[in-house]
Simulated assay, not measured.
Amino acid sequence: MKKLLASLLATLALMSGAHASSESLVLDKFPKERVTDLAALQNGAKIFVNYCLNCHAAAFMRFNRLKDIGLTEQQIKDNLLFPTDKVGELMKVSLDTKDAKEWFGAVPPDLTLVARSRAGASGSGADYLYTYLRSFYRDDTRPTGWNNLIFPNVGMPHVLWELQGQRAAKFVEEADPHDPAKKVHKFDGFEQLTPGKMSPQEFDSNIADLVAYLQWMGEPMQTQRTRIGAGVLIFLAIFTFIAWRLNAAFWKDVK
């Protein structure tokens, strides 16, 4: 029980820290149309399996659900089935929790519902992830050598740095608008230190695909749910009109 409470408190602390840091920033808008783009979802699944699934599990998602985004079972086996040999298996990782705590300071969270859990006043969970994954910068004071603009002192290293390249964050000291006697540390842009394998536009596009997949993974039926909901509302509107006219016809001769 004590371990469970400690785990819950640690999770809440991490989430509140990330939430507080993101509140002071404007989150970039995630391109929502990617969620219905099968090619984007397939590319996002590839990035997720190759870069995220080494440490982060998606323990509520099975590999065979990827058939819902247009992949065949053979494509899943040939290109995405690295942690296991069965398509029906859950997306788990073999990372030991003790090693994770030693290396990162905390166990990497499960990502199945991360796009839903990160929603807040500043924007949707997809907006948060889209901004977060594009906000890493070099910081030699951190154990991993990396830091993040909207999640300061994050334990996660920048696993996509080869694609984006290495960047440094520039900060300036400005007077605190609430107390002129104090100074505040204000972000003043990124400086590219080394180029990546992708251009900034290509990297942003691939991150959008990855976030689209994370958004889809949190609710695989969201597109169908929206379509079914629209159909139900149309049916109810038509039925209401018919019922209204029938009621008028039944009672027209009643004095």
Rank of each mutant, 00 (worst) to 15 (best):
K2I: 14
K3I: 13
L8K: 12
S16A: 13
S22N: 11
S24M: 12
L27R: 09
P31Q: 04
R34T: 04
K46L: 13
I47M: 14
F48P: 02
C52Y: 04
N54I: 11
C55E: 09
N64F: 06
N64R: 09
I69C: 02
G70Y: 03
D85E: 11
K86P: 00
M91K: 09
V93Y: 03
D99C: 04
E102W: 01
F104D: 01
A106F: 12
T112Q: 07
V114T: 12
R116T: 10
R118G: 00
A119C: 06
G120D: 11
A121C: 00
S122A: 14
A126M: 04
Y128K: 04
Y128P: 02
T131P: 03
L133P: 02
T141R: 15
W146M: 07
L149A: 09
L149F: 09
L149S: 05
I150P: 03
I150S: 02
W161Q: 15
L163N: 05
G165V: 06
D179A: 12
S205K: 12
S205E: 14
L210I: 07
A212H: 06
A212P: 04
G218K: 07
Q222P: 00
Q224M: 10
R227S: 10
V232C: 00
I234Y: 08
F235Y: 15
F241E: 05
I242N: 09
A243I: 03
W244H: 12
R245F: 09
A249M: 13
F250A: 12
V254G: 02
